[in-house]
Nucleic acid binder design. Structure first.
Lengths: 93, 93
DNA sequence: GCGTCCAATGCTGTCTCGGCATGGAGTCCG
DNA sequence: CGGACTCCATGCCGAGACAGCATTGGACGC
């Protein structure tokens, strides 16, 4: 499980389509497909239903999506907070 | 920025010592030291003060520690939630 | 000053990972 | 039917990342 995998998952969930998600992430389809498979393997359950049209979220996937977004948001908040603290402690003299 | 780096950061912050943190993570000291340096580089500020005794958190590091713990906790929650949903949707027939 | 203890760095082998090419399943239309 | 099309999955390979070993460099304490 890595932040990259989580990002890939969100993109696929939102696009419903591995190929489109790949373009959005400036990646190609095979590695992205493997990210999803790796996640499903690690979590021990399928997150998507494979349809001829693309990928549809399963209930487990819906649940994971909520957490996934929160994780990335928290990472983002961490970066901004730290930069703010650093600026505050060092910037204004 | 990766979950591994975040985990490394927490261990060093809690141990105040790269070597001890390395043992705790079943890792050696050099890669762990590089994890911290990579984080500091990415965040654009130092997180620790290097003392002859080890590593002491700077204010930016304290701020990051809070977020870091929340990130890992959220990841953990995600895993458990998904496993729970999968169990619920599949286990009881 | 010398031994000790710490993190940082140089280097190397291995493993990961992304991209290319291809496979295989399902669907639609003629 | 059958061929074309659209998906995701997989085999393969080369580049880059990363852990570990060995060593350096700096700071204390005696």
């Amino acid at each position: 499980m890595s932040l990259t995998h989580i990002q890939s998952f969100i993109a696929v969930a939102e696009e419903g389509h591995v190929g489109r998600a790949a373009r959005r992430l400036h990646l190609t389809q095979p590695p992205l497909s493997r990210h999803i498979l790796a996640l499903e393997d690690e979590l021990g359950t399928q997150l998507f239903e494979r349809t001829p049209r693309g990928m549809r979220l399963l209930p487990a996937g819906e649940a994971f999506l909520n957490h996934a977004r929160r994780i990335l948001a928290e990472v983002d908040a961490a970066v901004h907070t730290v930069r703010g603290v650093a600026r505050g402690a060092q910037g204004p003299h």
